[in-house]
Structures are given as structure tokens and as C-alpha cells.
Amino acid sequence: MKKSNAAIVIICTLIIILFVYTASAKLLDHYNFQFGLSESPFIAPFANILAWAIPAGELLIAVMLAIPAIRLAGLYASGILMSLFTVYIAAMLLSGSDIPCSCGGIVEEMSWGAHIVFNSAFVALSACGIYLQRKKRRTANNLPALA
């Protein structure tokens, strides 16, 4: 396996682990996750929908990352979702709200600042994966056909 292929697989595996873990934690403790969302000044009106949509979206993205044919779309989706999470956390910090994290599992033990760093790392991983996946596709498309 080429180094770039191995890097793509490692990146996707890390993101899959993150999303499956956090989605599972949110679903297993659904009441507390929904309650945490309902306490947020920004998303309280949408808490009931988001309490199901967020873990479902995380699981859908994990599946997309596992399927090579739609992996690039999964990398874009993971980058967008992690960026949205990061923007939300920054808004929480700027608003001065002292709402506990409802991310799920051990991730919710992080401070808001640590969350921004953690999420930014996963945004960077997604961006790196997008770059490598696009490069791989370009290389594959430029190869001469075997007769």
C-alpha cells in the first residue's frame, strides 16, 4: 500500500473512531445529551431535532468514510461538521455561557479550550485527507489506459 493510501486509511479510521464513539455515547445517554442541547442559548429551539440528527449524521459520515467510492464526500462532511462544532464552541466561549459539554463520553470532560484544539486537529485531519484523496484521484485519472 502506498504511503498516501495508508495515510488516507489512518485519517479515515481516526475520524470513524471519533464519530462512532461520540454518536454511541450520545445515543446511550440520549436524555442528558438532549437536555444539554436544550440548555444552550443558541440551539435550544432545535434541541429535540439535533439530539437525533447529530449522532445520526456522525454515524452516516463514519459509513461514508468506510466506503472508498464515497470517502471524499465523507471527508468533506467530517470537515464541515467538525468546523460547525468548533464555531459553536467558540460562540459559547464568546457569549460567556457556562453550559457543560454534551459531546458524549470522555470527550465531554475536556474544557472548551481543549475542545477547540481537539476539533481543530480533526478539521486539519479532514483537510489533509481531502488533499490526499483528491491527489490520489487525479493521479489515477492521469494514468494511461492499459491496452
Rank of each mutant, 00 (worst) to 15 (best):
V63N: 03
V63C: 08
A66H: 03
A66M: 09
I67W: 10
I70A: 00
R71F: 04
L72N: 04
L72V: 06
L72A: 08
A73L: 14
Y76P: 05
Y76S: 02
A77F: 01
A77N: 07
G79Y: 04
I80V: 13
L81W: 03
L81Y: 02
M82K: 06
M82F: 15
L84T: 06
L84A: 15
L84Q: 00
L84G: 14
F85C: 02
F85N: 04
T86I: 05
T86F: 05
Y88G: 02
Y88W: 07
Y88H: 13
I89D: 00
I89E: 07
I89Y: 06
I89N: 04
I89R: 02
A91I: 07
A91G: 04
M92A: 12
L93Y: 06
L94E: 10
L94W: 07
L94F: 13
S95P: 02
S97Y: 07
I99F: 03
I99H: 06
I99G: 00
P100R: 09
P100D: 10
P100A: 03
C101K: 02
C101T: 11
C101E: 09
C103F: 05
C103K: 07
G104K: 02
G105Q: 05
V107E: 03
V107R: 00
M110G: 06
S111W: 14
S111T: 15
W112Y: 15
A114N: 09
A114P: 01
A114Y: 11
A114W: 14
H115K: 14
I116F: 10
V117D: 11
V117E: 11
F118S: 11
A121L: 15
F122H: 10
V123W: 07
A124T: 13
L125Q: 07
A127T: 09
A127M: 14
G129F: 03
I130V: 15
I130L: 12
L132M: 12
R134A: 14
R134F: 03
K135T: 13
K135G: 06
R137P: 02
T139F: 08
N141R: 15
N142D: 07
N142K: 14
N142A: 15
